[in-house]
């Protein structure tokens, strides 16, 4: 009786332009790779040296891994309408803990656990500030961003701090090793991606995070524990940054809190945005975030290889990123295409 016949509703605007969101970042990635192929002959070459794959394409994926991991966590936090500026500091602390505990002679598997535990603590701190005390995310995470590298240096001081380097077959195996010619870190990153995807999409956590980010008041009235959900998001983000810290620290065999992962938070945020995430919160695109990280790394690698004077690097990068973002904006696309379509909408 309630089922009133629904009238043929006015069809939504933009009937033709309604392409899947994923198209634009993928197109951008393809375009960057194609241009690089033209500018730098042999760009696509992949060869096996000493049982492992080498080549620009492999290099892009390899180098993008830490940024992609950080960006995945960032995507979750941004989904709650938050932001985490402290991921670089979390990485610094993770690295310092690794160097310290290895110097202290702990088993390396335990060291790995402790490093991830330290990262989790960073997330708990951020989550407490944001969800518990209600401090604005940008300010709350700024605190750890500023202090975290100092904490890393203090950890180095625990054992004199003169030589914070180490050797670890386990950790370096995870970071720079290879398995069936493929870098191990790609397997590791794939496993982390899968785990995160399961947590977000195979439980209701993703729905809850997106509802909190989209409209926290409504989510609360619908029964979602918005504070707890926000807290969990920051912990997940820090854990992802922790894994990135393990890979980066093992790569350099040393703890360098002052400069490790400098500005990685900016690349991570950029990757999320290129992947279609909005800083206004409410949506998590894990897969597209990885594409976003790849776009950034492909761009960096391509510019380096193209032989362009290094002075141009950042400017070219900025221009391309701006272009990708414009492509994603419905408004900008309409503004660009409308002169060719007349005024008919």
């Amino acid at each position: 009786m309630m089922a009133e016949q629904t009238e043929p509703r006015p069809v939504a605007m933009r009937p033709r332009m309604k392409l899947h969101r994923a198209v634009w970042p993928l197109l951008a990635l393809a375009a960057i790779l194609i241009v690089s192929g033209i500018v730098s002959p042999g760009f696509y070459n992949i060869r096996i040296v000493e049982g492992r794959l080498f080549g620009n394409l492999i290099d892009i994926v390899y180098r993008a891994t830490p940024t992609a991991l950080v960006a995945l966590g960032m995507a979750v936090v941004i989904g709650t309408k938050g932001i985490d500026l402290s991921v670089g500091s979390t990485i610094a602390i993770t690295g310092a803990v690794i160097a310290w505990r290895i110097q202290m002679g702990d088993p390396h598997l335990v060291v790995l656990m402790m490093a991830l535990g330290a990262a989790t603590l960073c997330g708990i701190w951020n989550g407490f500030l944001v969800a518990g005390l209600g401090i604005q995310p940008i300010i709350a995470t700024l605190i750890l961003m500023v202090s975290g590298r100092g904490i890393g240096l203090l950890i180095n001081l625990l054992y004199g701090g003169t030589n914070p380097s180490f050797e670890s077959a386990l950790l370096q195996g995870l970071s720079t090793g290879h398995l069936m010619s493929i870098p191990t870190r790609l397997f590791l990153a794939a496993a982390i991606f899968l785990a995160l995807w399961l947590i977000i999409r195979r439980t209701a956590l993703g729905l809850f995070i997106e509802s909190v980010g989209g409209n926290a008041a409504a989510a609360n009235l619908a029964g979602v524990n918005a504070r707890l959900i926000t807290f969990v998001a920051y912990v997940l983000c820090a854990l992802c940054a922790g894994w990135a810290g393990v890979i980066m620290t093992a790569d350099t065999h040393t703890s360098d809190p002052v400069s490790v992962a400098m500005y990685i938070e900016l690349d991570a945020i950029l990757a999320v945005v290129i992947g279609g995430g909005s800083l206004a919160g409410g949506r998590i695109h894990l897969g597209m975030t990885v594409i976003g990280a790849l776009v950034i790394q492909a761009l960096t690698t391509s510019i380096l290889i193209s032989g362009l004077p290094p002075e141009y690097n950042l400017v070219v990068k900025a221009v391309v990123v701006l272009f990708v973002l414009l492509l994603q904006s419905d408004n900008a696309r309409r503004a660009i295409t409308s002169p060719f379509r007349g005024r008919a909408r």
Binding site: E210, L221, G223, G282
Partner: peptide, 25 residues
């Protein structure tokens, strides 16, 4: 302001309360 999460779909909006009743797991 308090009812809908505009970006989420009709289905997701309908699910929100019963899902939070069941818990996230």
């Amino acid at each position: 302001a308090e009812g809908l999460v505009a970006e989420l779909s009709v289905r997701e909006n309908i699910m929100l309360s019963i899902q939070s009743k069941q818990g996230w797991l």
